[in-house]
């Protein structure tokens, strides 16, 4: 019995000793590749390999970035886009989490609503954008609506799956200790479906970002998408690239944050 205890040290200690070697090597290769690409990009127009008007240069992009942050009302446009994103996403969470929980616990509701929900999830909700504009005008409202529509379905579907795929052996165990239906709901089903809910959130982030940008590209008076439209028609590749980087970085950061929480929670259930 004592010997069994010794074998089960937490795994972290062992992982640490290896982890300082591997990422640094791959990080080095990665950095070198990026540097090589930047150099190539910088000299290509000068050497006449490509037309600089269409490709811009790293130095130009850098200057454009500085200029954007200093003179371009960047904060004003970013605030508009961010507001649309946050409003739509928050609305999606408020609606989809309870709905997913409800559908996850009721078999009948699930059978009834699963097919249309699935169809809506698969269909690109952006096709509804023109309708949203007709209904809601050209201000923030249609973008918020599109963000909401993009984010709501992955969260509902994943939460629902998490709830309904609860391990029957946990339910039986809880019942054996006299758990009420409410106990089972709050102490088994909800914590058990948390990883699935987070997966839903993560998938929703990408769709929500897409919703904001495409919404603003379609028709708007302000926002990052509006700026993209403006510089697109002016063929300012340098500025377009800066905005593309900003939008990607935003979506990427959010996704990474959600994923790290998700992995932490999932750790407990795997193995």
């Amino acid at each position: 019995m004592r010997s069994a205890e010794i074998t089960a040290e937490p795994a972290e200690a062992r992982q640490l000793s290896l982890s300082f070697l591997r990422p640094s090597r791959s990080a080095m290769i990665g950095t070198l590749a990026v540097l090589a690409f930047l150099v190539l990009w910088q000299i290509a127009p000068t050497m006449g390999w490509v037309n600089g008007r269409f490709t811009s240069r790293p130095t130009e992009v850098l200057l454009a970035a500085i200029d954007i942050f200093q003179n371009d009302d960047f904060l004003y446009h970013a605030r508009i886009s961010l507001t649309e994103f946050v409003a739509g996403f928050a609305l999606a969470i408020v609606v989809s989490v309870p709905l997913g929980v409800l559908l996850g616990t009721s078999k009948i509701a699930r059978h009834l609503i699963d097919p249309p929900l699935m169809a809506l999830y698969i269909a690109p909700t952006l096709v509804l954008l023109p309708i949203m504009v007709i209904w809601l005008g050209i201000d923030m409202a249609p973008k918020i609506a599109v963000v909401f529509l993009g984010a709501v379905f992955p969260i509902v579907l994943n939460t629902m799956a998490g709830m309904s795929e609860a391990d029957p052996k946990f339910l039986r165990m809880a019942r054996s200790f006299g758990a009420t239906k409410f106990d089972i709901f709050t102490r088994v089903l909800v914590p058990g479906s948390l990883p699935a809910l987070l997966t839903g959130l993560r998938l929703a982030v990408g769709r929500a970002v897409l919703g904001v940008i495409v919404g603003e590209l379609f028709v708007s008076q302000a926002g990052i998408g509006y700026q993209l439209n403006l510089y697109g028609s002016a063929m300012r590749i340098d500025r377009l690239l800066v905005y593309a980087l900003i939008v990607s970085a935003f979506g990427y950061t959010l996704t990474v944050i959600v994923r790290s929480v998700e992995n932490k929670v999932r750790d407990w259930r795997s193995k």
Binding site: D167, K169, F170, R172, M173, A174, R175, S176, F177, G178, A179, D183, R187, V188, P191, G192, L194, V265, W268, R269
Partner: peptide, 30 residues
């Protein structure tokens, strides 16, 4: 089920998101 009986199931049906102490407390909470 009743508090006069307790079951040890064949598979260790421990809740993965609870610590050892949390799992032992589960029955007490219920």
């Amino acid at each position: 089920p009743g508090p006069d009986r307790a079951v040890v199931f064949q598979e260790a049906s421990l809740l993965p998101w609870r610590s050892v102490r949390g799992n032992v407390k589960f029955g007490l909470e219920m």
